[in-house]
Write a protein that binds this DNA or RNA. Structure first.
Length: 615
DNA sequence: TCCCTCACG
DNA sequence: ACGTACGTGAGGGAC
């Protein structure tokens, strides 16, 4: 047995690394005692983060309580694996920090299904996020094990991940190669692997106590665990990549990038991604660049360049001036380069041996609880045309179905703020912006009026002002000022709710509590954001409820992605109509007297087919 | 690591 | 006192 000793919050703790069969017997004996006393903390060390990439390996599985950790060297062979697997299958309660990662690892590489592990798991990261969802950059503790341990357990908790980077360097390894190559016998690696479970074990009771103290309901904690499981199920299924298409796409984008970079070079711009060079060259061509960035640099973003190129933001010719050829070349080269590297090449890089991509879905990422998707960031693929989304396919024999909530944030606002006349509009099944426009302008209301009141409505949801709303809609500031006044007259409850939410936040440590009991910290200098936080968060929980309803309808296996106000599914072609109707039903419910409704669109095999012609 | 830019809801 | 568009992930340059 290799044994390491350490001090955690003044207590001596022990980390064991079994080497022999007798050592494994000692582990089993400890586990039998420990699982009787309470939940067992669990963690894994692996070769990296891309769980589904070819060659990925599980290296160790760690079990522990507040005083003792066992680092089981999975990769050392069958005896170690069966001891770990038996423990994984038997222990009634596990504590995991960031459970979706370990669920995915153990499901894919240890033969312990997500369906078995998830119901036995408490995720300390989810609990910490419900206490305070802010990242360190936003003034929060963050949801990493290290900062949480340092805050709640022991201020001298080591940065186990960061310190290991140093160890990797001393061994001639890097952050990228270290996790796969470091010997299991490395003392710091083994000690830190063990300490992580000890910290997790100590974190959980503190977080439970704090959640209880602040009145966060256990049902909310449970709900988040269900959503995390559903999102990990989607990640495991992944999406089929059209590899031939992506390879051709990557090549053609490379051509476009280079062609327009050559054009830019003729005007003296060596690098189209260097704003300073572009500003200099354009100024040299006699262009006047008036706009500045926040830090005072000359602004040369797409809006500035498009105007010079005589193009709208959508790329249509405006016929307002002589197009500046450099501006157009920069726009096109940059766009092609970004689409290639961020999308096409990333798809190929992260796909598994079967040609599927498995995006990581963080079920509770944003301050408002909104979900995020990374590697690849499938929530932010270009939607202006189907070029990128065309690369992702429904399962074999399936078609893509997208089901969107209709005007979810406006409905949520009407419900949360109790906006009587707005509720009335929704109950009548009307388009809310037409409804508003007609309340003000009567039957003579025009498309333009609708646009102005839509802008006013968005401003309410985002906490925006007259000037921004005018800029966004293209209306004059005077017209927008009148629209705001009409809005406040028709729907006075919104201002009242905003004032109430801000007052309540001031009285409770700058935290506004959402309709589902979620704690949403407000920034002291922008309390107006409270309306947005309430709306965005409640809308997120509508999507969360929809995902639970979709699972209850037996359609979890068809789910592909959550996209804020949309569920994306892949369904057998001949069942598509039935599935679409069932998902619409799962996304239809009442929220404080406001009907929440959704509309399905059935596409073809590719996701892109929902954004243009079918393929 | 920060800043700028740009993709989405 | 007044007014403030919200939330993300990612690439690439400059330091």
């Amino acid at each position: 047995m290799e044994t390491y000793r350490h001090d955690v919050a003044g207590d001596p703790v022990t980390v064991h690394v079994p080497q022999t069969r007798a050592d494994l017997d000692a582990f089993r004996a400890w586990l039998t005692e420990a699982e009787r006393r309470g939940p067992i903390a669990l963690d894994t060390e692996t070769t990296g983060l891309d769980v589904y990439s070819p060659g990925y390996r599980l290296r160790t599985v760690q079990f522990g309580d507040a005083f003792t950790a066992w680092v089981i060297p999975w990769e050392r062979g069958p005896a170690f694996q069966s001891a770990a697997r038996a423990a994984l299958r038997r222990v009634p309660r596990f504590l995991i920090h960031n459970a979706p990662f370990d669920w995915a690892v153990l499901d894919a590489h240890a033969g312990v299904p997500l369906e078995s592990l998830a119901p036995r798991t408490t995720d300390t990261r989810l609990k910490a996020g419900l206490l305070d969802p802010r990242q360190p950059q936003e003034g929060g503790i963050g949801t990493g094990l290290k900062p949480l341990s340092a805050y709640w357990v022991d201020p001298s908790a080591p940065d186990t991940q960061g310190d290991l980077t140093q160890v990797f360097r001393s061994l001639g390894l890097t952050k990228a190669t270290g996790w796969a190559a470091i010997p299991l016998s490395n003392a710091i690696f083994a000690l830190y692997a063990g300490l992580d479970v000890i910290y997790t074990a100590r974190l959980d009771p503190v977080l439970t106590r704090e959640l209880d103290r602040l009145g966060v309901r256990p049902t909310l904690v449970q709900y988040e665990h269900e959503l995390a499981r559903i999102c990990t199920t989607m990640q495991r299924a992944g999406m089929v990549l059209d590899q031939d298409y992506v390879r051709e796409l990557s090549a053609s984008l490379t051509d476009e990038e280079h062609h327009f970079a050559d054009v830019a070079r003729r005007y003296g711009v060596e690098n189209v991604n260097a704003p300073r060079q572009i500003a200099e060259a354009l100024t040299g061509m006699g262009e006047h660049l008036g706009e500045r960035t926040a830090s005072g640099a000359v602004k040369v973003d797409k809006a500035v360049l498009s105007a010079l190129a005589d193009l709208s933001l959508q790329g249509e010719r405006l016929h307002l001036r002589t197009p500046n050829p450099l501006a157009e070349a920069v726009i096109r080269s940059k766009r092609a380069g970004k689409w290639r590297s961020a999308y096409a090449d990333t798809f190929l890089e992260v796909m598994d041996a079967q040609g599927r991509v498995h995006p990581f879905i963080n079920s509770m990422q944003a301050r408002t609880g909104r979900m995020s998707v990374t590697r690849p960031a499938l929530q932010t693929l270009p939607s202006s045309d189907q070029m990128i989304r065309r690369a992702l396919l429904a399962d074999p024999g399936h078609v893509m179905i997208s089901v969107d909530f209709s005007a979810i944030e406006m409905r949520v606002l009407a419900g949360l703020a109790g906006v009587a006349r707005m509720k009335e509009g929704f109950l009548r099944g009307e388009d809310i912006h037409w409804f508003t426009a007609r309340l003000v302008k009567g039957d003579g209301a025009t498309e333009k009026d609708r646009k102005v009141f839509k802008g006013a409505g968005f401003s309410k949801v985002y906490g925006g002002g007259v000037r921004t709303a005018a800029r966004q809609t293209g209306a004059s500031e005077e017209a927008m000022r009148r629209a705001f006044a009409e809005y406040d007259r028709l729907y006075p409850e919104i201002k009242r709710a905003s004032a109430r939410w801000q007052r309540e936040a001031f009285e409770s440590g700058m935290v506004t509590v959402s309709a589902t009991g979620r704690r949403l910290p407000l920034d002291r200098d922008r309390t107006y954001a409270v309306v947005n936080y309430q709306c965005q968060s409640a809308a997120r929980d509508c999507l969360g409820q929809a995902l639970l309803n979709i699972e209850d309808a037996g359609l979890l296996d068809m789910l592909k992605l959550p996209i804020h106000d949309e569920a994306l599914l892949s369904a057998p072609r001949e069942e598509a109509q039935d599935v679409a109707r069932a998902v619409e039903k799962a996304m239809t419910f009442d929220l404080f007297g406001v009907p929440i409704v959704a509309e399905a669109e059935i596409g073809g095999r590719s996701w892109g087919s929902l954004y243009g012609a079918d393929y």
